[in-house]
């Protein structure tokens, strides 16, 4: 089996599991919904104010919700020692990693697609800048979160209190990415300045950390 067919097989398995249980997506959706509602009535912003703060709120909600899905990534494989089976199999570790990262990307992207209409309703949002850049920012930003998130989730399952460990590792490293997502989104919503340097920064972040994860994942998976 080649790397890509292994990735596809693992991804299909994860998607089928998620489709039948809907554990991750349901908990993420409800969590993000709660964040949106609580922020909305604690700030009660006007349309003008919400343009300025929405970039931050949207990404904070997605960041917290993504951690819910990321935490479940590897926990499933611990049951019945599936992860140990992966380790002893000759399958390349990176194909497993990519499958998990793509799976998380799909979960978080579905969450974003479902939550965006809600944000627009609650915050009266209307972009004044180039709207077509928003999906680009969303795709790059989501990948930035899930690629490192998937990697750190693999590290945090080895620790005590693993659920809390993942955000502690992920958030400090993600600071530049979160800043870039928030600023790019605010730039597009307000139309006051260009989002391009931030998009370039996000793309660089994605390239750097995807490379880093692929180079080091095998080391982390085989650690004993």
């Amino acid at each position: 089996m080649t790397t890509s067919s292994l990735t596809r097989a693992t991804l299909a398995k994860d998607l089928r599991l998620e489709w039948r249980s809907k554990d991750a997506i349901n908990s993420m959706l409800f969590f993000a919904l709660l964040v949106v509602v609580i922020f909305s009535f604690s700030f009660n912003p006007t349309a003008e104010e919400s343009r300025q703060i929405a970039g931050g709120l949207v990404w904070v909600a997605f960041l917290f919700a993504a951690v819910v899905a990321l935490n479940q990534t590897w926990a499933r494989e611990l049951r019945n020692q599936v992860l140990d089976a992966y380790r002893v199999s000759p399958a390349p570790a990176n194909s497993l990693f990519l499958a998990k990262a793509f799976g998380n990307f799909i979960f978080v992207a579905v969450l974003e697609a479902l939550m965006t209409p809600l944000f627009i309703v609650f915050y009266n949002l209307r972009a004044l800048g180039p709207t077509w850049q928003l999906p680009v920012v969303a795709a790059l930003g989501t990948w930035a979160l899930v690629v490192n998130g998937t990697f750190f989730a693999a590290m945090s399952i080895r620790t005590r209190s693993r659920e809390i460990m993942l955000p502690l590792l992920l958030f400090p490293i993600s600071i530049p990415a979160v800043l870039a997502m928030v600023e790019a989104t605010s730039a597009i919503l307000s139309g006051e300045y260009s989002a391009r340097p931030w998009i370039a920064l996000l793309a660089t972040y994605d390239v750097v950390f995807t490379t880093g994860c692929l180079l080091l994942f095998e080391t982390v998976l085989d650690a004993e």
Binding site: M155, R158, T159, R160, M165, L168, L169, P172
Partner: peptide, 11 residues
């Protein structure tokens, strides 16, 4: 600090 937390929490 997250580095030191990881060291403290991992087996």
């Amino acid at each position: 600090v997250s580095y030191l937390m990881l060291r403290r929490f991992s087996s």
